[in-house]
């Protein structure tokens, strides 16, 4: 099976002050195949969010090599990295990060605008995605008129707008009750069946159990893979 993601000796250090540096990631090596469902676990401060940001091209590592979908990140400029975030990666956040002034529908449409899709197809797809996550009736609602679970489903629909192969979720159930959390995980499972690769960061063992593979981090190092 072909690899979608490869990390080789990746390290990341945050400079808090001149003397005080935090080594968030130390020599991380990970290979993830297309269509895998991977959970990244670890206590807070273990570096799991940093790892997701590096994988999601929101942050650059100090050293090491990252290859996503056959692109070596070292060769890319910021515009090309934005292009990969747009086309290949879909993000789901703990706090949903929906734009409060836009309706659910417009939130889902947003990535299509940057992807320069034709208007008609983009609208059709946004509608279809919202129906797929069970929000066909609530497209016109603003985020503050939706429940937590509904907001996260809008966020998932938004992550799928440009049909990415890799879904990155940072504590997607962290702000939800257990019932809504299970619904969200069901949707991720469904997305995996469609052939997408799912990487979920969580500290909840219940959630991690849903994944095929668990990577455990502690103090910036992989302790179990």
């Amino acid at each position: 099976m072909s690899e979608i993601l490869k990390l080789k000796n990746v390290s990341k250090t945050y400079r808090l002050t001149k003397q005080n540096n935090v080594e968030a990631l130390k020599n991380i090596n990970i290979n993830i195949n297309k269509g895998e469902f991977v959970a990244i676990m670890g206590p807070s401060g273990s570096g799991k969010s940093s790892l997701l940001h590096v994988i999601g091209l929101l942050d650059k590592p100090e050293s090491g090599e990252i290859v996503i979908d056959d692109h070596n990140i070292a060769d890319l400029n910021s515009k090309e990295m934005a292009r990969i975030r747009l086309k290949t990666i879909g993000f789901v956040f703990q706090t949903f990060n929906l734009l409060p002034r836009l309706s659910a529908f417009k939130n889902v449409l947003l990535p299509a605008i940057y992807g320069r899709q034709p208007r008609g197809t983009a609208k059709e797809r946004a509608k279809q995605l919202l129906e797929q996550v069970g929000l066909g009736e609530r497209m016109k609602h603003k985020p503050n008129e939706l429940s937590g679970g509904e907001k996260q489903r809008v966020a998932i629909a938004r992550a799928l707008t440009n049909n990415p192969t890799l879904i990155l979720a940072d504590e997607p159930t962290g702000n939800l009750d257990s019932h809504s959390g299970k619904e969200i995980m069901k949707i991720f499972k469904q997305l995996q069946k469609e052939g997408r690769t799912i990487i979920v960061v969580t500290h909840d063992a219940e959630i991690a159990k849903e994944a095929e593979r668990i990577i455990c981090l502690k103090d910036g190092k992989i302790v179990r893979s």
Binding site: G56, L58, S78, K79, A82, R83, R85, L86, K87, F91, F93, N97, L99, L110, P111, Y114, G115, R158, A159, N162
Partner: peptide
Amino acid sequence: TKEIGLRKAIGATNGN
């Protein structure tokens, strides 16, 4: 600021 971060995460370039 948060909106800017989100837009960048979903693929907006600095130019956008």
